[in-house]
Every structure is written in structure tokens, then in C-alpha cells.
Amino acid sequence: MTEPAAQNLSAEGGHGAVPTTGVPAGSGRPVRDWPLWEVFVRSRRGLNHTHVGSLHAPDAPMALRNARDLYTRRQEGVSVWVIPADSITASSPDEKDSFFDPAADKVYRHPTFYQVPEGVDHL
């Protein structure tokens, strides 16, 4: 219980790196018996798959079908990926500064110094 939260970097919970130890909880054991899956949907050809949320399912084929029901009800997608949440290694909230802040003052990394040609929508 005294382990630092940063040691556990699972994406369990579906919200990125959430500490799963040292956090007060009821039973100490998840109530759910099905594993968690992260869902990625490609909304149309030419775009990347984007993370849209998570769900529970007993196995991969059922996860794919549940994803279809939960996240593409309104024709949001042409392709769906599901990935076991515990296969994802996430960055730690404690390392946020060293991970991301150094990029803040490096304007030359941003493509702001030239015009994007018309018709190039998804550079």
C-alpha cells in the first residue's frame, strides 16, 4: 500500500496513467471480471485511428463487436482497433514536466513558417 503510485503505469481505467496502488478503494479488488480494452476508431480513410474510449469484453472478438455497438452507432468509423488496456505503457503524471515541458519553447518545431497548400487537409 505504500508503494509510490508512479510504479504502476497501467492504463487501467481508460484515462491514461492512473495510479492503481496507494489509492483508497473499497474491496481492493475490481468488481468487473472482464478485462478492459481501449478502442481506436478511424473516422474515414486518410485519417489516423483515434482513441475514443474503453470498454469491457471477455475476449478480442467480443471487444471488437462491443466497440462497434458503443462507438460507431452513428457511422463514426470505417475501421476499429481494440487493444488490451494492460498492453499499453503510459507516461507517468509525475514525469509530466520532464516529458513535455522542454518542447514548450521550441517554436521551430512547429510548421508555422510556411503556407500549407490548399487541399492538404490532414498534414
Binding site: L55, A57, N66, D69
Partner: peptide
């Protein structure tokens, strides 16, 4: 049995 199945059966 599960929320996900709830949605599937609802569909």
C-alpha cells in the same frame, strides 16, 4: 449481464 451487452441488446 454487462453494460456493453445492455447496449448491444438495445441496438
Amino acid at each position: 449481464p454487462q453494460l456493453e451487452e445492455d447496449v448491444a441488446l438495445g441496438n
